[in-house]
């Protein structure tokens, strides 16, 4: 199983995507436009705005392109990404990927029952298969551990209800048929991971 995972990760590592990215330049750009919303250290302290610290660079790059091209509709982000050159996107992605991930300062205390309900769903739903067993993500698949709880819940509802899809609809499939309560439990469980 470990070997298979290594193969899967390698398979996504294309030489064409080799790092020409400049995280220092990315930090400069982020300071000017992104950190006020996404948090000084990449951990968002603002409701409904996701943390970006420690997200895989490929995930950030892909989402920024979807925002730029208007194929993921979030007006505020569509505006920031409009006409952004690939180079800026890649540098920003390298910067946020280099930041240590962690929960927001105001993360609420663990609710044991809700946590257990979420934990009971991640196995059968294969969440860790794509997002990796520590939910840290890989390549275009995002880190979901220690993300803001309300953002996790909202994004899962968007996938379930067909209001968001990525480069493929893997995520839409993963949450088919989940109730709002299931989603709340999953979001709580994931937000509590470190």
């Amino acid at each position: 199983m470990l070997r298979m995972l290594a193969a899967a990760v390698l398979a996504a590592a294309i030489p064409g995507a080799a790092p020409a990215q400049d995280a220092h330049r990315g930090a400069e750009l982020a300071r000017q436009t992104c950190l006020m919303c996404h948090g000084e250290n990449g951990r968002s302290q603002t409701e409904d705005i996701p943390s970006l610290a420690g997200q895989p660079a490929d995930f950030i790059t892909l989402q920024m392109i979807l925002f730029r091209e208007g194929t993921r509709q979030v007006p505020v982000m569509n505006e920031f990404a409009a006409h952004m050159p690939d180079k800026d996107i890649e540098d920003l992605a390298a910067f946020f990927a280099s930041l240590p991930p962690g929960p927001p300062d105001d993360r609420r205390a663990r609710d044991a029952a809700l946590y257990a309900a979420g934990q009971a769903l991640v196995g059968p739903r294969n969440c860790g298969v794509c997002h990796v067993s520590d939910f840290g993500g890989r390549a275009q698949i995002p880190r979901i551990a220690a993300q803001r709880e309300e953002f996790l819940a909202r994004s899962m509802m968007e996938y379930r209800d067909g209001r968001r899809a990525g480069a493929d609809t893997q995520m839409n499939g993963a949450v088919v048929g989940l109730s709002d309560a299931d989603i709340a439990a999953l979001a709580h469980f994931l937000a509590q991971q470190d």
């Binding site: 199983m1 298979m4 995972l5 899967a8 398979a11 996504a12 294309i14 064409g16 995507a17 020409a20 490929d58 790059t61 892909l62 392109i65 690939d86 996107i89 890649e90 298969v129 794509c130 390549a139 275009q140 698949i141 480069a167 493929d168 893997q170």
Partner: peptide, 15 residues
Amino acid sequence: GSTLAPHGPTLTVTP
């Protein structure tokens, strides 16, 4: 235990 998932696209310009 399978960890297979689709490979992500590259949507930036490749030099």
